[in-house]
Design a protein around this nucleic acid. Sequence first.
DNA 1: GAGTGTTGTATCCGTATGAATATAACGAAT
DNA 2: ATTCGTTATATTCATACGGATACAACACTC
Lengths: 113, 113
Amino acid sequence: MPSLTLRLYLDPKGRLGPGKVELLEQIAATGSISAAARAMEMSYKRAWDLVEEMKDMFGKPLVAAKTGGKHGGGAELTPVGEEVVRRFRDMERAVHEAAAPYVKALQDEADAR
Amino acid sequence: MPSLTLRLYLDPKGRLGPGKVELLEQIAATGSISAAARAMEMSYKRAWDLVEEMKDMFGKPLVAAKTGGKHGGGAELTPVGEEVVRRFRDMERAVHEAAAPYVKALQDEADAR
DNA sequence: GAGTGTTGTATCCGTATGAATATAACGAAT
DNA sequence: ATTCGTTATATTCATACGGATACAACACTC
């Protein structure tokens, strides 16, 4: 089954695609950057770099992290972070709907072998 | 000004995105793989690799190349190649339209800094 | 037949990317 | 005070990817 992915290039610079968005969702779900990284089988460094990138892209942090505490710390999405996830997923839904016939036509082209 | 790019994952495997599509257009415009590569400032090897990938993706060649001749040879798109370009660009148009409000909202989020 | 510019292909190499590793700071719980 | 798991950060290392390079085959023109 074919699929379509979107990559958004924000104005001065910075790309937002499925990877960063899924990372945000995993952070929200697990409550920590490192747990999200484990869930996505990427290094903590990479996850942290992506979070930093997003902070630069949007000028505000999308993730609020705390060090120390009962379980050593943790992270959660800021309101902006939640907003970004929601909007990106909404956009994906709208786009997949609009693109469906074209995707099918191209996949058929590939099947006709 | 923000922009949105699409990447299509065809069924067994193979990605089709803006790079390969632009390459096809440049081949059509210039009449050769190597001229297209120069126009896009990529190595001939890379261009040729991409053309091969697309042949594997679609089971049929999207580019017909000839060696020898007055100018040493040349290449043009097959009917399938032209079809793929056309459909991809059509899809992009439809998608950009559907995504516009979401793109704007996300860009505004980034501007509010 | 020589010259030409391209296709098609193989080999080598530099670099950039991310993985791995190490470590300090942190703050709550015990 | 000690323990704990996380954040935050720097440094080193390996590998994969593309770039550069080289060259044979080709067929048309002159």
